[in-house]
Design a protein around this nucleic acid. Structure first.
Lengths: 352, 352
DNA sequence: CTGAAAGCGCTAACAT
DNA sequence: ATGTTAGCGCTTTCAG
C-alpha cells in the first residue's frame, strides 16, 4: 500500500506537503503541487479513508438507512427503485455508500451512534420515525436527508414527492373520463399515506362529488392488500366505476381482486396506480399511474445532502414533482357502467 | 466518545488489557475481564471500526457489489430481492455493509483496491465477470462470495441457484400437462443464462421431443424483451402451446405480448417464469414459476463468507435448491391447442 | 497475567 | 512555502 510518506520520499518533501498538495491546498506552490500529483498518479496512490476518518476529516462516504421490513414489502419495490436512483447519484458524485438495512425499526439514537463511529459525511434515511426520533434528528449535526417525511432541522432536509398533487392528477384524470363513483384504496395513518387520502377527498369535493364511505378502503400498500380490496369493492351492491390506488402494487392487486369478482379492468372499472414502478408498464393492462421521477429525485436528494455537508445549504423541505402517465388501466366511462352506477342492482358478473 | 483508555482508567488497568478483555482473550483473568465488560457496558463503549481497520484488525464489515445497470433492469428485481435477503442475513450476524453500486461494470482490480482500503472483512459480489476478473478473483485473498457464477478459489466461494434443475422442473411440469410444442425464451450468452437453456434442450430431448428452432428466442431477461418475444411467438404460423421463460419479468412481458396477438394465457398458451419475484403471485394470471428460496440462499451466502473469513471453510461451489411453484399461468393442454399444434393454419386470433 | 512502546495513514496546529 | 510534532483509537509485539 502506497502512503503519503512514499510519495513524500519520492518528491523530496514531507508528508504534510503531500497531504496538502493532494487536497489542492493553496499553501503549496504550484510546481510542487503538480509534481506531487504526478507522482501520486504514477504510484497509484489512494488515500486511506479509514485513516482520514480517524482524524476527523471527510470520508466521502454517506450512510444509507432504509428499512425494508419483510412484512411491509409493500413499499419495498418503490423504495428499492428509489434506493437505486440515489445510490447511482451518489456514485456519480464520487461518494461511497455505507448501508444499513434492518428488519426492525431502528432507534435513531443507536443509528447515529453507529454511524458516527463510521465517520460518514452524511446520511440518507428512508425509515419510519417515532416522535422521539424526530426530536433527536432535528438536533443532530450530522448532515441528513430523509425521504418521504415532513420535517426539517439545521442539518436536516426532507425530500418528498408531491403526493397531494399526484393524487389530484389521478382523480382529475378519472373525472375527465366521466367517472364519478371513484373509490380510494390505501387510506392509512402512515405519514406517506395521509396526503394521498386528503388529496382524494378534497379533489372529489372540489368537483362537487359526495364521498361514499364504502368506497374508501383503509389498508397497507402491498399487493395482498390490493387483492383483498379489489374483491371487497367487487362485491359491493354498487361497485365503483373507477379506483384510485395509493400504490402500484395495490393497483395490481386490485385489478386481480376485481377480476376474481367478474369485473374487468378497464372495461368495467378503471384503476390508477401510484409510483410508476418499472414493472407497471408491463402489467396487463398496463397501469395508468403517477410517475415519481425517481432518477431526478435521487439527484435532488444527493445534491441537497452535499449542500448540507459543505455548508452551502441549510436544512429545507423539498417537494419533488410527479407526473401522470396514462396507460391502459383507465378509460372513458361506458354506458353500462353509468347504468350500473345509477341502479342498485347487483352487477352482472362474468367468469374469467 | 468513550475509548478503551477511559475504560482502562476506570478499571485501574491499561488500554491493552481492556482491548484484550473486550475481545475475550484468555490472557486476561476472569475477574478483570468481567469488571471491564461491566464498565464498558455502563459507559456505552463501542469500538471504533475505523481505528480497528487502521491497524489491520477485523472490522465486522463486508462489501456488497451488485451492478444494477440501468439498461439491464432485467435482473434487477431479482437481484434486488436477493440483495435484500443477503443484507438481512448479514445484519442478523452483526455485520455491517459497505455498498458499491455502479452503472458500469467495474474492473475487479479497481474494486478490490478500493475495498481493501476500507478494510472490509470480506465481500459479496453479484456482478458480471470478465476473464481477467476471474483470474484476479481466484488469486485474491479477500474472502469473497460471488452469486450466480461458476468459479471458486482459495478464498472464493460461488453460490448459484440450481438453474439446471429449475428449468428441468418447469419443462417437466409443462410436459406433464400434455404440452409438447414448448418454446424457450431467454437464450443468451450470459453465464447465468446458459444452464437454463441447456436444461431446456436436454429435458426436451430426454422426453423425445425434437426442438423447433423457431421456438427458441434469444434475448435479454427484461420485460420489454418478453413483450417482443411474446408478439413474435404469437405471430408464428404455428405458435407454441407453452412457453418456458428464463425470468419472471420475461414471462410477464411474454404474456402481454401474446395477448396483443390474440393469444390468452393460460387458455391458449401456458407460460412459466423463473425467479418467483414477490410480484409474480399477483400478476394476472398469477405466474407458475421457479422459486429461488432467496432467504435461505441469503443465509447460505453469508455463512459461506463468514466461514471464509474465519478460515473455517475453504472456497467452494455451492448450488442452492430451487422449487417449482404452480399457479395460474399454466394449465393442461386443450383440444383446441392440440389441434392448432398439428395444423399449419394460422391460429384464429381474437381481440382483447 | 499484565503493561509499555510502537505504529496503522492521515491531518491540524504550531513552528520555521 | 514547507516541515515538525502530536495524536485520532486501536492492536500487536515484546518485556516484565
Amino acid at each position: 500500500m502506497v502512503t503519503i510518506y512514499d510519495i513524500a520520499k519520492q518528491a523530496n518533501t514531507s508528508a504534510v506537503t503531500v497531504s496538502l498538495a493532494l487536497r489542492n491546498s493553496k499553501r503549496v506552490s504550484e510546481s510542487t503541487r503538480q509534481k506531487i500529483h504526478e507522482i501520486a498518479r504514477e504510484y497509484g496512490y489512494r488515500p486511506n479513508p479509514l485513516a482520514r476518518g480517524l482524524v476527523g476529516a471527510k470520508t466521502k462516504t454517506i450512510a444509507f438507512v432504509f428499512n425494508f421490513s419483510s412484512n411491509e414489502l409493500s413499499h419495498d419495490l418503490s423504495y428499492m427503485e428509489y434506493f437505486h436512483a440515489i445510490a447511482q447519484a451518489a456514485a456519480e458524485r464520487g461518494y461511497k455508500i455505507y448501508f444499513h438495512s434492518s428488519t426492525e425499526a431502528i432507534p435513531i439514537e443507536k443509528l447515529i451512534e453507529d454511524i458516527s463511529l463510521h465517520r460518514v459525511d452524511g446520511m440518507v434515511l428512508g425509515t419510519e420515525l417515532t416522535d422521539s426520533d424526530r426530536e433527536i434528528l432535528r438536533k443532530t449535526d450530522i448532515p441528513t436527508v430523509i425521504v418521504g417525511r415532513d420535517i426539517r432541522g439545521k442539518k436536516l432536509t426532507s425530500v418528498s414527492t408531491d403526493d397531494y398533487d399526484g393524487i389530484r392528477q389521478a382523480v382529475e384524470h378519472l373525472l375527465s373520463l366521466g367517472h364519478k363513483r371513484i373509490a380510494f384504496v390505501g387510506k392509512s395513518s402512515r405519514e406517506t399515506a395521509i396526503a394521498r387520502y386528503e388529496s382524494y377527498r378534497e379533489t372529489m369535493s372540489q368537483a362537487g362529488i359526495p364521498i361514499d364511505d364504502e368506497l374508501i378502503i383503509e389498508t397497507s400498500y402491498d399487493m395482498d392488500a390490493g387483492e383483498y380490496a379489489g374483491r371487497k369493492l367487487g362485491e359491493l351492491e354498487n361497485p365503483p366505476t373507477a379506483v384510485v390506488a395509493a400504490s402500484d402494487l395495490l393497483a395490481i392487486g386490485i385489478i386481480s381482486g376485481l377480476k376474481h369478482k367478474g369485473l374487468k379492468v378497464p372495461d368495467d372499472v378503471s384503476v390508477t396506480g401510484y409510483d410508476n414502478l418499472h414493472i407497471s408498464q408491463f402489467t396487463v393492462p398496463a397501469l395508468t399511474t403517477i410517475d415519481l421521477l425517481r432518477m431526478e429525485s435521487g439527484k435532488i436528494v444527493i445534491d441537497a445532502l452535499l449542500g448540507l455537508i459543505t455548508g452551502k445549504r441549510e436544512g429545507e423541505k423539498i417537494r419533488t414533482e410527479v407526473k401522470l402517465i396514462v396507460r391502459d388501466s383507465t378509460r372513458r366511462i361506458t354506458r353500462r357502467e353509468e347504468r350500473r352506477e345509477k341502479s342498485e342492482e347487483r352487477g352482472e358478473k362474468r367468469e374469467t
